[in-house]
Design a protein around this nucleic acid. Structure first.
Lengths: 347, 347
DNA sequence: AACGATTGGTTAATCGATGTACCTCGGGAG
DNA sequence: CTCCCGAGGTACATCGATTAACCAATCGTT
């Protein structure tokens, strides 16, 4: 534990580098930012000196001077319930970070329990100038966040909105209707007629979009939903909804869930009720989380490439922050992934 | 989209507040930091003015002046494989954030693919003064990170170490041996004699600790492990290991996994092989992730209260950063949670 | 009444990096 | 020989908040 050569904790400043290279601090700054006019020789000399000393420009100092912190916020609603620790967000974060890291940006993660706390958080983040922008998740009906962020002058991108224009740019999760439509058609082809939908919270935009797609896909086939139940994405509700559906007199032969986590709960609940999946009842998820493919039976689901969505959101936000990045290419629409949890309708 | 009353993007500074309250900027600062001597009256007047203007001290400016950013880093190894998006980290983050948020600290999240990248990241974070400290996860045998962080002068806490003393403070995950021991005894009482262990990567410290506990618990009963297989925590390896074990001539009657995610894969694999859990084979996990209780059968596991560990790590790190926080109370040892995936040994 | 102590503030330096305005050469044109 | 010009750097103000040092009243004391 003897102190190594360098005095730990005492970071070198731009002055040290300037001295080492025999130039002014301004020159050092210019060398790092490709501004001003420096001869290639001195530039190299400065860079060498910096490398030698292990110097990088102080982030707080640069942030103060430039009014840009090079970090973005991601605010996630904290689970009031277990299902909240949904791996969905892990995937999203992976996608975002993949874009930020190579550009030297940081991701500031915050968890909140509800809208009031979330709003206060944005106020504080903006007031303190802690971040250059924010990724908003789970677009809601009449979402008040975009207006707030606009008022605060904080660039933002809203995730999970079906359409593309608003106060702040939005990243749709692809044409979500298409994914659900494809899923329903798959079930219809398998002969299912009594199909139920376990939806998310009604205040989320994608809930409405997917529900509409679900109902209209059935209508095209001259059918009506067996039932549509809303949940808060919690395990309790997912299980409760499933039990209610399976208890029905003529129970549904297929259950469609608004996300994979609930679908997993659904499979468990069905099995616990003595039903076999997919022989007695088919189950369909949404998200294509890794989790789904570990189970037996493997979960049939809709892949929406959450990581790519995250990456696209990050790029769009970076662009809003003045970074020049190539246009986010939101690849294909969500696609059905048929695995083992769906099968021919019984009887 | 017409601009609201306030000019968006133009944040108020301490000067504006000082002017509004009719005092100097120094007074404003003192009012916010409980330093200096201000009459209660002016203090209140200043705070009111600040509230009115929606002002909070600029984080970058304060960071520059105080050499403290009030944000901590959490570096997570990015999944080379799906299992990497292990909900374990969601839980950990929840625990950490729970301590940081009320103190106005931010959590800077970074994903890395391997040790070289991770080391470079710490160098950069330290050099740029972006964070006040870091949480290191997954203590490894001969871990080089503590020394690096010490050299950089960056406070750090190491998670997942069995013992408690080192270059940087370490948070043990409780007496992990105890959890495994309890698990093995549970299986022994159920009559199991052929018990296999699917371990994590050998370079992680907890792998050695848990493995040792596993073997010694069996030895106490005069038994030897059926087998101990190491994995990299990936789905592929978990499934592969499980298949290998179940293919054995006299197959094991119980499988113990080093984490819940692998245990879930194990259950799926066993079921796919036509075995019933727990009638034909018992399965035991480690972590007690929410996921485990959604399945059928519900996963028997060892609860190590990941959230609390995260909270303890955060508090310890905050203390190292000079924040005065109450001593982290690392509650109980890991405890066995018996659910449905373990049962009497067959035959 | 003069003086030290106390209360309640203010002034000015500082953190580290950045960018504008300016300065200093050496060389070529006139 | 003088003047101008551009290449190559430097000096200094600045971003916003913090804090040590300092100062102006007011009060109690003998």
């Amino acid at each position: 534990m003897s102190a190594p050569t360098g005095r730990a904790g005492r970071r070198p400043t731009i002055k040290a580098v300037a001295a080492a290279a025999g130039v002014s601090t301004a020159a050092v700054s210019q060398a790092f930012n490709h501004k001003g006019r420096l001869s290639e020789a001195t530039r190299r000399r400065i860079l060498d000196a910096a490398l030698q000393l292990g110097w990088s420009p102080s982030a707080p100092a640069a942030a103060l001077r430039n009014a840009r912190t090079r970090s973005l916020a991601l605010v996630v609603r904290r689970p009031t319930d277990v299902l909240g620790s949904d791996p969905h967000f892990s995937e999203l974060i992976t996608g975002i970070e993949g874009e930020l890291a190579p550009r030297g940006y940081g991701l500031l993660l915050h968890l909140v329990t509800g809208p009031p706390e979330e709003h206060a958080l944005y106020e504080r983040l903006a007031a303190e100038g802690r971040v250059d922008g924010a990724v908003l998740t789970d677009a809601r009906e009449d979402d008040t966040r975009p207006a707030l962020l606009a008022r605060l002058g904080l660039p933002a991108v809203l995730l999970g909105s079906p359409d593309g224009t608003a106060v702040v740019p939005r990243i749709g999760l692809g044409d979500q209707g298409a994914g659900v439509t494809e899923a329903v058609r798959h079930l219809l082809e398998l002969g299912h007629r009594r199909i139920a939908y376990v939806a998310g919270p009604p205040e989320l935009q994608h809930t409405r979009v997917r529900r509409a797609a679900f109902e209209s896909a059935l209508r095209e086939a001259g059918l009506r939903p067996f039932a549509v139940l809303h949940t808060d994405f919690s395990e309790r509700r997912a299980v409760g909804a499933t039990e209610a559906l399976l208890d029905a007199a003529e129970r549904p032969t297929a259950l469609v869930y608004a996300n994979d986590s609930m679908a997993v709960c659904g499979i468990g609940t069905a099995q616990r009720a003595g039903l076999r999946v997919p022989r007695d009842v088919s189950v369909l998820g949404y998200d294509n989380l890794p989790l789904g493919s570990w189970l037996h039976p493997r979960l049939t689901t809709v892949d929406q490439q959450v990581q790519r969505v995250g990456a696209a959101a990050a790029r769009m936000l970076l662009a809003l922050c003045g970074e020049d990045v190539e246009e986010p290419t939101l690849t294909g629409r969500p696609r059905l992934v048929v695995r083992e949890s769906t099968g021919p309708a019984p009887g």
